[in-house]
């Protein structure tokens, strides 16, 4: 349907949309996050859902304690090597469609604790991340910005065709292997399917 006809119809009180548009409208306005805090950023995540910042405006105030009922995992804080297997396990337990926000410097790359022997250098190593928010910790406004970014991404997902959304494709994994505790490090140290070490700019 072309835009002109749609506009003309809406003047007469007839609302038209596509199934895809309706579907995405519903999905993007009820993203239920997993109530899952790891470290400092979790406090800002809670603050975002409280009175002043009011995440309920974005339909995302329903923090679910169980991964089975959640759509969105906010990795809020430092992921340690001891915690990484449980984070992956929680992600595996979430039903599709599911999204990940890496909140804060630690979840992105290890942040200030990058040199630590027990700190995972970014949750990207095991999970596909949709939105990264830098900051230590990011302000609640930044988390809201991440939500809006995620909503735009959900809105742009198509239900059919070769570019259809990730959860509708059978060739993409929705569960990832849980790393095992080794003698010194996690095994494997990263999941090669989701993460490849970036090429260094000046190393050639």
């Amino acid at each position: 349907m072309d835009e002109g006809l749609r506009g003309e119809l809406s003047k007469h009180g007839v609302f038209t949309t596509t199934l895809e548009g309706l579907h995405n409208w519903g999905r993007r306005n009820s993203v239920w996050p997993l109530q899952f805090g790891l470290a400092c950023c979790a406090i800002e995540m809670i603050a975002t859902s409280m009175a002043r910042y009011d995440l309920a405006r974005f339909g995302a105030e329903v923090f679910r304690p169980s991964p089975r009922q959640a759509d969105l995992m906010i990795v809020a804080g430092t992921v340690t090597k001891k915690m990484a297997p449980q984070v992956v396990r929680l992600y595996n337990q979430m039903p599709e469609p599911k999204y990940v926000i890496a909140m804060g410097a630690c979840a992105i790359s290890g942040g200030p604790f990058k040199q630590g022997y027990n700190v995972l250098k970014g949750i990207d190593r095991y999970l596909p991340v949709d939105v990264h928010i830098p900051g230590c910790p990011p302000r609640p406004e930044a988390l809201i910005h991440a939500f809006m970014t995620l909503q735009r991404r959900i809105d742009a997902q198509s239900l059919t065709g070769p570019n259809r959304a990730r959860h509708l494709r059978s060739d993409v994994d929705s569960e990832f292997p849980v790393p095992q505790f080794g003698a010194h490090d996690l095994h494997p140290p990263s999941n090669p399917k989701t993460w490849t070490p970036p090429q260094s700019v000046r190393s050639q």
């Binding site: 430092t78 340690t80 001891k82 915690m83 040199q115 630590g116 022997y117 027990n118 700190v119």
Partner: peptide, 14 residues
């Protein structure tokens, strides 16, 4: 314990 052991003491010693 230990799920948030992020090596504060070791980092501070360096």
């Amino acid at each position: 314990f230990g799920y948030l052991h992020r090596n504060h003491e070791k980092i501070a010693e360096n």
